[in-house]
């Protein structure tokens, strides 16, 4: 039985010297004037005040040619078409499911956007509507892709590919959406023995690498077999590493997660979340990432 009690200490933000200076970044707070030049178009996070372009959120200014927008650094997930998300079903309604994806409004998964069991291609009938609850219930986790965005900002999801669908056994980690790097693929089979889905909405799913691919099931069959112990250890360690990286605001992608995992191998799993060990591991990871960049 282990109890770790200690007095709190002020934790300083560690930053590698010189590399991350804030010269290049233009940070603003609400009310700051970005520019008085009228030649620019205004994007998200700004408003026009007396011919002056002013910021309405606290964040970093982004300029693309003539478009200026301010991107807040810590925000709800604003989805775009093509993003991979991991969400939880909150409601079963007529012909659609409501999915919670850490965004302003609950996303929508229409019955016509999911694959039917067995991979059939046919029109959805009234029977399918009644059987909706047999497939996805309240509380289930799914991985999906954003198909379109409604006018009020709600996302419409689809699971029309075999790699998306209901998720089985594993661990969900919630981080801020701005920490997940946009990449070509969000599904990775890490060499350490587990698989990871980095959802753009900040929900990260860790699961044991499936042995054989059940192609025909297409995400319907969730195996309830006990996961072997070594896989569990890898998943727990990865979870703690992810939380450590998120606490230090390191961008999450497969390489950074892997480096962090390797640095943490010298410590015990449950110690990773202690402040001083977390600092050490994240420092090492940052170092390696810098070296890798060149």
């Amino acid at each position: 039985m282990a109890v770790d009690m200690r007095l709190p200490t002020v934790r300083k933000q560690i930053s590698l010297s010189g590399s991350q200076s804030t010269d290049g970044k233009h940070l603003v707070v609400p009310g700051d004037v970005i520019t008085s030049d009228t030649g620019f178009m205004r994007g998200h996070g700004t408003y026009m005040d007396d011919e002056k372009l002013t910021a309405s959120v606290a964040g970093e200014v982004e300029r693309v040619n003539k478009l200026i927008c301010v991107r807040p650094l810590k925000t709800r997930f604003n989805g775009e078409v093509g993003d991979v998300v991991v969400g939880r079903i909150t409601e079963v309604q007529q012909k659609r499911w409501k999915v919670e994806t850490n965004s302003r409004l609950d996303s929508v998964l229409l019955l016509s956007s999911v694959n039917l069991p067995g991979g059939e291609l046919r029109r959805r009938s009234a029977e399918d509507e009644l059987a909706m609850r047999d497939y996805l219930q309240e509380g289930d986790l799914i991985s999906a892709e954003v198909q379109s965005v409604f006018s009020d900002g709600a996302l419409s999801l689809h699971t029309r590919s075999l790699k998306y669908g209901k998720l089985g056994q594993g661990v969900l980690v919630q981080v801020s959406p701005s920490l997940v790097k946009r990449q070509k693929t969000h599904f990775h089979n890490l060499p350490c023995g587990a698989s990871i889905i980095l959802g753009n909405n900040g929900y990260i799913w860790l699961y044991p690498t499936p042995g054989q691919q059940d192609e025909e099931a297409g995400g319907y069959y969730t195996s309830l077999e006990p996961v072997p112990l070594p896989d569990r250890e890898v998943i727990s360690r990865l979870r703690n590493c992810l939380l450590a990286l998120a606490a230090h605001k390191v961008l999450l992608y497969d390489t950074s997660v892997l480096y962090c995992y390797e640095s943490s191998l010298s410590h015990q799993m449950k110690d990773i979340l202690k402040p001083e060990i977390m600092d050490e591991i994240v420092m090492e990871t940052r170092q390696r990432l810098l070296e890798q960049e060149g």
Binding site: M5, L7, E233, M269, K270, L273
Partner: peptide
């Protein structure tokens, strides 16, 4: 299943407490 094997989701054992700070 994890609890049965004494390995919880965050790597703790069944009788371990999380990190605690008291002031």
């Amino acid at each position: 299943h994890g609890v049965r094997d004494d390995l919880r989701v965050d790597g703790r054992g069944c009788e371990d407490y999380r990190h605690m700070e008291i002031e």
